[in-house]
Simulated scan of single mutants.
Amino acid sequence: MAADPYGRFRGTRRPPADEEAPRELRLYGLNAVRAAFARRPEALRKLYLAEARIPALQPLLKWCVANRVGYRVVGEDDLRKLAASAHHEGVVADLQREPPVALDAWLAALPAGPQCAIWLDGVGNPHNLGAILRSAAHFGVAAILLPHASNLALSGAAARVAEGGAEAVPMVRLDDDATSLAQLGEAGFATVATVVEGGDNVFAMPPTDRLVYVLGAEGEGMDRGLAARCDRRVSIPGTGAVESLNVAAATAVLLAAWWNRPARP
């Protein structure tokens, strides 16, 4: 298993949850398309753009011509239909989808030293996923961990919200919870469940160099059994004026806490 220049790993193993996933991904948004082209231009299959975007996308267009990849200059209505969104920012691209890598392969290729990952238990909203990916890229997160049976996958909407962050953070497919927790523990990771109340203050948590934050679904929260099996449970203190933070906002707070952890003595 080899890492590309952006630290992503390509695996050959596809678990059942990924077998029916579409082989192509339709991206839209200037930063999302540029980031995908910068990291994996060979994945590009087709490009659509507004005339006003030609100057900004010259390197991409030259690559398309040199590699016989089709592109079309189209109008606003066509871009809106292609993206199924008004937020296309003048460019839409079809790319070969990159499947998640298996947990054991990711761990085997992971560099030594401090690492943080995010385990998403039931999160499904694409805009939340995009915001999580953006924060994850900003704070250098090593991976998004997806439960074995999860149908969560990168979408055009998530990639646009991520503003290029989707290309910086790999997605990793877990095995069953017990096996995954054991593998992460053997690799030196502490697993920390995030709960609305009853957890330790996340800002008072001892510094941990290898950490997995486990976050639950937007409405139901995380599975209680999974939370109980994690090494720790933490909460984000606040005024109590609202029950909790949105999962994407909570992720940003948690990652900032890890990034700014005190140095070990």
Rank of each mutant, 00 (worst) to 15 (best):
T179P: 06
A248S: 15
P55F: 07
I144M: 11
R264W: 12
L47M: 10
L95G: 00
S180M: 06
P265E: 00
V247H: 09
N151W: 00
L254T: 09
P16G: 01
V169M: 10
C116F: 04
R13N: 01
P170K: 04
K81T: 11
E42C: 03
V234Q: 06
L255C: 10
K62I: 03
W259P: 00
D231N: 15
R40W: 09
P111G: 10
G156C: 07
E24P: 01
V234S: 05
G164K: 02
R224F: 08
L57P: 00
A190P: 03
P5E: 10
G29K: 09
R72H: 13
F139Y: 15
R8C: 06
A93S: 12
D121S: 03
G240I: 13
P237I: 08
I236M: 02
V141K: 07
T239P: 01
A3P: 00
D223M: 05
V161M: 03
L254D: 07
L47H: 09
R14Q: 14
A241N: 12
P41L: 05
N246Q: 10
L133Q: 12
L82R: 02
Q115D: 03
A217S: 14
R210M: 08
E98A: 14
A204D: 14
R53T: 04
A86Q: 13
D121C: 04
A250G: 10
L152H: 09
R39C: 07
G238C: 04
P15W: 14
V73D: 03
L152V: 08
R210C: 09
F203R: 14
A166I: 00
V33F: 05
V202E: 04
A83H: 05
I54S: 09
D121M: 05
W63E: 08
A56I: 01
S155W: 05
W258S: 02
P126G: 07
R8P: 00
K62Q: 13
R14W: 09
T179M: 09
S135W: 12
R14L: 15
S85A: 13
G122N: 09
R53W: 02
P114Y: 08
A159I: 03
N128C: 06
L120S: 02
E51C: 00
R80H: 08
V234I: 13
A50N: 06
R233T: 11
R34T: 10
N128Q: 06
T12Q: 13
G122F: 09
G90P: 02
W106G: 04
A158K: 12
E218C: 06
S235L: 03
A131Q: 02
I118P: 01
G156P: 05
D177A: 15
G140Y: 09
W258A: 04
A193E: 12
Y213H: 06
N31R: 15
G240Q: 13
E76A: 12
A204L: 11
C230S: 11
G156A: 07
V202L: 15
P126T: 07
A166F: 12
I132G: 02
L152E: 10
V101Q: 00
L120C: 01
E243W: 03
A56C: 02
F139K: 10
A83P: 04
A157E: 15
G156E: 06
P59W: 12
A190R: 15
A217H: 07
E243T: 14
M222F: 11
S150R: 01
M222N: 11
L120E: 01
P99D: 05
G165T: 10
V196T: 14
A36F: 02
S85D: 11
G29D: 10
L215A: 07
